[in-house]
């Protein structure tokens, strides 16, 4: 029990109701803003609250969401991976190129892409744990290398061809003629991530390493192995995002991942995961990914000029993030 000898403000049991409401808003502040934004859109536009639009939003959130799972795991470790978006690009480009130019069977090409993503994660993990090079530096370098290789492969051109048609069902397929396949993929992946984090020894160890890696190591946890595993997992997920993106746009380009780096990291941070590691809820990352997509969706529906869209989206993000301050400001 906390006593005045220690720090009385830390114990949740001793706080009144207002404090708890403020804590909730502080921790889940972006959800409050999300709900307000959705309510506003439902009232001011005709088409926001339709099944079609909701599925459109969820489909658009799929790739950000899937890559954000990997980013979330790595941020839980207290690291950061800036190379995920360019991993997505390269894996997608390699897969498309194998299918179009080498006429590889689609399944094999997809497996090659996933393998490549895993390999990139492995290299990141090994460099960070074995050579003890800071994660930001390592993955920033990796980002540059991967973009460069993607550029060498594409020569600045779009890769396209009928061979890609085969995997388009990943983006366009539906279940029972109603629910888009990517939406199902998104929820299945998040359900799996939830179980892995909360119900497996691996998940428990990820939290432990992020919380205090020295103490985790002294508790017999092989910190390096957990880190490498996590980078491999995140790399594979990013590559899967690349597969989904090629299926979605039907082409592959050397710049197709660059639009994801910022939203993916924003989703994780907006979801409340601590950049110092050890704290974060995967469900919040999913909600944040959907929120980010809804911001753009709503502005198009509202007919806001594209010249002002960024200002509005920046403002919404700042408001959502600044609610976080309520938690740390003592009243």
């Amino acid at each position: 029990m906390a006593t005045p000898d220690q720090t009385p403000l830390l114990s949740g049991q001793q706080q009144g109701t207002p404090r708890r409401i403020i804590n909730f808003i502080g921790e889940q502040g972006f959800i409050v803003i999300f709900i307000l934004w959705a309510l506003y859109l439902s009232v001011s536009t005709n088409n926001f609250a339709t099944a079609q639009n909701v599925f459109t939003i969820l489909r658009q959130a799929t790739i950000i969401g899937i890559v954000a799972i990997g980013a979330h795991f790595i941020i839980l470790l207290g690291d950061i991976d800036l190379s995920l978006a360019s991993n997505l690009t390269l894996s997608g480009v390699v897969m498309a190129s194998l299918m179009v130019n080498q006429e590889l069977p689609p399944l094999l090409a997809v497996l090659c892409a996933l393998g490549l993503g895993a390999l990139i994660g492995l290299v990141n993990g090994m460099v960070i744990t074995r050579l003890k090079i800071n994660a930001i530096i390592t993955t920033l370098g990796m980002l540059s290398i991967l973009e460069g290789i993607a550029f060498i492969i594409t020569q600045g051109k779009t890769i396209f061809g009928d061979a890609i048609e085969v995997i388009k069902f990943l983006s366009r397929g539906t279940l029972l003629d109603a629910i888009p396949l990517p939406v199902i993929v998104l929820f299945v992946f998040y359900a799996a991530a939830f179980v892995v984090l909360g119900r497996t020894t691996y998940g428990a160890r990820v939290f432990a390493v992020g919380n205090n890696s020295k103490a985790a190591w002294l508790s017999g946890i092989n910190v390096d192995r957990i880190k490498v595993l996590t980078y491999v997992l995140a790399g594979t997920l990013a590559a899967f995002g690349g597969v989904m993106q090629v299926a979605r746009q039907g082409t592959a380009t050397g710049g197709m991942g660059s639009d994801f780096l910022f939203p993916v990291l924003t989703a994780v941070v907006l979801g409340g995961a601590s950049l110092t590691g050890g704290r974060g809820k995967i469900v919040n990352t999913l909600i944040a990914a959907v929120f980010l997509t809804t911001i753009t969706n709503g502005m198009v529906l509202l007919g806001i000029s594209i010249y002002t869209q960024r200002v509005v989206s920046g403002a919404i993000l700042i408001i959502a993030l600044s609610l976080d301050r309520l938690r740390t400001v003592r009243v």
């Binding site: 497996t200 020894t201 428990a204 160890r205 939290f207 432990a208 919380n211 205090n212 020295k214 103490a215 985790a216 002294l218 508790s219 017999g220 946890i221 050890g278 704290r279």
Partner: peptide, 24 residues
């Protein structure tokens, strides 16, 4: 404080931390 326990994890998880394989 910095090596013996994980401040931001529950008592339950702290106790089980070195024995995770035995509760899985």
């Amino acid at each position: 404080k910095s090596e013996g326990v994980m401040q931001e994890l529950s008592i339950r998880r702290n106790i089980a931390l070195a024995s995770l394989d035995r509760v899985a």
